[in-house]
Design a protein around this nucleic acid. Structure first.
Lengths: 116, 116, 116, 116
DNA sequence: GTGGTCTAGACCACT
DNA sequence: GTGGTCTAGACCACC
């Protein structure tokens, strides 16, 4: 077992934005808040905010236009694909953990259906 | 959104042990490693290791006998119940996250069944 | 016969505070001194002072709000109940000791009535 | 408030013996165990055991005869008096504590009568 | 050996 | 400021 360390803030905030993009709360082509705004919103360091966008750009989900700000990529297919990817990641972790607890797939499904 | 902070070490290690108990890797009545051993195993401070057991005792899943060590509680019902509780917590978080990503319950179940 | 050992400091100080609470010297909802103040007042380690409040919280008689301090629980019924419990404990020990000395209940009562 | 420290062992053991004397479990004139025996019985240091008798002698309840051991004083009046003294001490502490908790004498008596 | 307690001092998160 | 956590090292009581 490895002891967890804090997830870097820029990743945490990045996930939050990805989620907004992927669920359509922010549309393709739409402008994201400036790094400065982001820093205020989450009360984080502006450098960290800049790193958030840097990271989203690396993932191909955002695009920075010099002097104009950062925009959501205009590629619905890609955002859909990322949404699926995030879901699969969640599913995979979740199923793994449940199996560690000794639950079968059938039991897992049953518990989910009971959850409401 | 709240930025995640590190989960305290004593809770992380505690969860690990709880998992071992509820899945039967450690049997009811069995002796757990001494606080000092635990400290060596995870390279944490003996005080922190002691806190792990203190916490497990508060949760009613372990019992400590002065000068003799810490033991898994002899109550299969309770450990079963805790196992269910841990599972429900996982399910609840997972389903919450998936719904934030816009997945319906049916879709969630489908993804799990595809996962293998 | 068991030789008495020192009662842990955090319990002694805790009892002192409990007494102040149940007798109304500190009112429900009132703020208790910060752990650091407590440490200075009793010249104990801040960790030990923190443990005092940790323990009072476990007993349900205090509530701590992160970054804001520790407060007396707002539940007069509970504090009354604890007051009764503390008294019963005292009575039980006292009567036990007196009976060991060979006094009957009637004699005990008589001695108390003479005491003034 | 003063933090309690451990009551010296020789006093604790001394109280135990006084109790036995005063309640007639050990008769006036009877020989008490040797310091060596006492040390074994309570697993204390022989010096500490010797100090126990020294203390009982100072209180006038025991008498050491050179080379013959320590004996309970042959004075029933005195032992009775000490028994009363011990009781009064207990009563006084007890009543004091109860009053600190806000109980009146009448309430104290009532609680004792309820205690069985 | 075991756990229980305490001190000393540090860093962090929350308000 | 507040409490929460952690390390480091010490001493003690119990078995």
């Amino acid at each position: 077992m490895k002891l967890e360390t804090t997830v870097p803030i820029y990743l945490q905030v990045g996930e939050e934005i990805k989620k907004a993009i992927v669920t359509g709360k922010v549309k393709p082509g739409e402008k994201l808040p400036s790094a400065r705004e982001l820093a205020l919103k989450y009360t984080i360091n502006p450098n960290t905010a800049a790193r958030v966008y840097q990271h989203l750009e690396q993932e191909g989900i955002a695009m920075t236009k010099r002097g104009m700000g950062t925009y959501v990529i205009e590629n619905q297919d890609l955002t859909d694909q990322i949404r699926i990817g995030m879901a699969q990641e969640l599913v995979s972790h979740f199923v793994g953990n449940m199996k560690e607890l000794g639950f079968s797939e059938a039991e897992i499904v049953k518990l989910i259906e009971e959850e409401r």
